[in-house]
Design a protein around this nucleic acid. Sequence first.
DNA 1: GCAAAGATTTGCT
DNA 2: GCAAATCTTTGCC
Length: 236
Amino acid sequence: MSSRRSPRRSPPLADHDLSRTFARARLAGSTLDAARALIGARLARDDRAGRIVEVEAYIGTDDQASHARFGRTARNAVMFGPPGIAYVYLVYGMYDCLNVVTEPEGRPAALLIRAIEPVSGEAAMRHARLEAAVRRGHTEGPAGIAAVARRIEAIPSARLASGPGLAAIAFGLSRADTGLDLLDPRSPIRLEPAPAEAATPPIATSARIGIAYAPEPWRSVAWRFFDPTSAAVSGR
DNA sequence: GCAAAGATTTGCT
DNA sequence: GCAAATCTTTGCC
């Protein structure tokens, strides 16, 4: 590039709207506070966006349901790092799940994104869902890919990302995305605050899902947070 | 080095 | 309503 070009202090952020940057401070403190802050916030990719409607908190090495219960390992290392970073893991050998790291560096904690209500880019989400079905060999039956494509077209919008595995598929996320800074406006996947005009959503709580293996009190603690008015909440 | 289990989803009985 | 699918991570011998 020519040295006569006017220098840029940072990459193309000149027209970036700062009101669309989620505040790292909201993730750096209590994970339970951060969980409430995430309900109604947005997850955005270039061609799609959605409203987070369900999250679960996993806090510290004492939490016997958390991946951090074994201490720091190769898999969970980012949970011990700074807040706002993506932690994507493979569950049951089949599905990737997105977490947002919380709390200061050195304290392992994260919020599992369990459900997202699509706001835009539903076609991209359906396309991602079809690609996932092809990868899993679900299109090799007698019905073929056309039948699977029709079935995916028929899925209601609110069901496109209504579970942790489905949310990752809808947004095209995989373990390779672990380490991404979700609060960097230049990141391909970003966390953004709810629009100023959006109403504050109601928030309900319950025990976390799928952790029956954990001893009490971890099994029953109400660390799942969701918007009970959303049709996109998982398990309905 | 091996065995067990898992922060899920889907399809069939 | 139950069980299969699928493979990485972790604990233990």
